[in-house]
Design a protein around this nucleic acid. Structure first.
Lengths: 135, 135
DNA sequence: TCCTAGTTTATAATTATTCTAAAGTAAAAA
DNA sequence: TTTTTACTTTAGAATAATTATAAACTAGGA
């Protein structure tokens, strides 16, 4: 994804293309595979891979802005830290608790034959399948 | 569940039946339906429903001891607080984000036809299905 | 009854995250 | 282009859930 596209992506979601947002966006979205991270891991990676400095609060702000704009999704992981995913399509996850690592599962690789219907007046927003791994 | 059974339950899992543990166990397990809670909600309920006093740390300790002994399970819910469930059988959940409420789904009410196999050298520990609700 | 290991307690520490207020910057208006 | 304004970034403080600590307490065996 070129810089110009990053600009468009930000603009189209009402986010000013500031220096920090562009840098973070480039880091997150200029890759082939999907990327899973926590704010902490992103902070460390940015420190290592870029020359800019980022306040932690900026990383929180930016990541949440991207999430709100639909460029990132937040993943259901039990634990303290929040995980984000650059894959915003509907999909599922393996979780390796040994390494605290998430692995994407394509929505087509999971087929659910039967689920109960939502209770009284509620509707189903989405179904997340989470497969915990062990060694 | 009678008091004597609470004692047995604790004993058999290597937990001394102290005043606090017995009180908390009675509160958690002497009920027909499964019970979902956070440490915070449990603390409030104990304060309201019992005459004893409990340090917050004791509630954390006790709940984790019960979890370790297999009397409680921890539920996959995104968010800050950890949810526990007195239903320790393999089952799934609805989650109502409006009310922050969990609802059990019997394992038999979910049939998964296809899941991918675990990656390289890993095995599947368990599969959790989480159905988010909306209004 | 006495002893000892396991428990409870109040409080401090930790950790992830959010808030705040001042300084900085993008981009619209003049 | 300059000015203005609203949005951003920043460092550090505040918050909230949880865990650690260390002293006082207690269950249960000797």
């Amino acid at each position: 994804m070129k810089k110009i596209d990053i600009f468009k992506k930000l603009r189209s979601s009402g986010l000013r293309p500031t220096k920090q947002r562009v840098e973070i966006a480039k880091f997150l979205f200029e890759r082939d595979k999907t990327f899973h991270f926590t704010v902490e891991s992103l902070d460390k990676l940015l420190a290592k891979k870029t020359t800019s400095k980022f306040a932690l609060a900026t990383i929180y702000n930016t990541v949440h802005a991207f999430k709100k704009a639909g460029h990132l999704s937040e993943v259901e992981v039990r634990g303290k830290k929040t995980y984000f995913d650059t894959n915003i399509t509907n999909h599922h996850h393996f979780y390796d608790s040994e390494t605290c690592e998430l692995i994407d599962i394509d929505a087509n690789d999971v087929v659910i034959q039967k689920i109960p219907k939502a209770p009284n007046g509620k509707k189903i927003k989405n179904v997340e399948v989470f497969i915990n791994l062990k060694n």
